[in-house]
């Protein structure tokens, strides 16, 4: 299974929508990679400076209803083009969540109090997340705040998607 996670981008805002993840004017691009430079272009979130904060990240931690709005799978693709393959949030919009797993990426829910703890303990520091889908475990660490290991409940379907690399690989054989 591919490595999941990396350096964490904290986005302290509810309802981050897919227009913010990738504006519609770039939906005329014909490749997933071409979306990379425009990811999060229109996002305004407390403390977020795109040029400073996006490069080199592998994971996002955010708040409630992440990925709402348009069904565009360009949103996970734009994240993937920037090396991000995990989003951890209090909750997700249905289509975005499914799109992430359909691409073999992870959209993991954690309770509000845990998300709050992650923000208060780790945001503003260089934090690394490692996610082990098989073991059902997420690890956060930073030099100053130490290590926090959390259980992750991942469904059978979601695990199968992460293992197989996505829905096309799974469904094209089965149906």
């Amino acid at each position: 299974m591919k490595k999941l996670g990396g350096k964490v981008l904290f986005l302290d805002k509810d309802d981050i929508n897919t227009d913010e993840l990738i504006p519609a004017k770039y939906l005329n691009e014909d490749s997933k990679k071409a979306l990379g430079p425009y990811c999060l272009e229109d996002l305004s979130a407390p403390g977020f400076d795109r040029a400073r904060d996006l490069p080199g990240k592998g994971a996002i931690v955010s708040r409630a209803n992440f990925g709402c709005g348009s069904s565009r799978e360009h949103a996970p693709w734009a994240l993937e083009a920037n090396g991000i393959n995990v989003v951890v949030a209090e909750s997700f919009a249905r289509i975005f969540r499914r799109n992430m797993y359909n691409c073999g990426m992870v959209a993991a829910e954690l309770p509000k109090a845990v998300i709050e703890e992650l923000f208060s303990r780790f945001s503003g520091q260089e934090t690394v997340m490692e996610l082990d889908a098989e073991k059902g475990e997420i690890l956060f660490s930073s030099t100053r705040a130490g290590i926090l290991k959390l259980p992750l409940s991942i469904g059978e379907f979601e695990l199968a998607m992460v293992r197989s690399g996505g829905w096309v690989e799974f469904a094209a054989k089965r149906y």
Binding site: S70, S71, E73, I95, N102, V168
Partner: peptide
Amino acid sequence: DSHTCTHGAFGAFAAGVGTTDLEIAVLK
């Protein structure tokens, strides 16, 4: 397309999906 939910007005279950789900939908 996320606004596929519109078609439920006819008593249908109509859902917006991403490109991967669409790919399997047209294929299978």
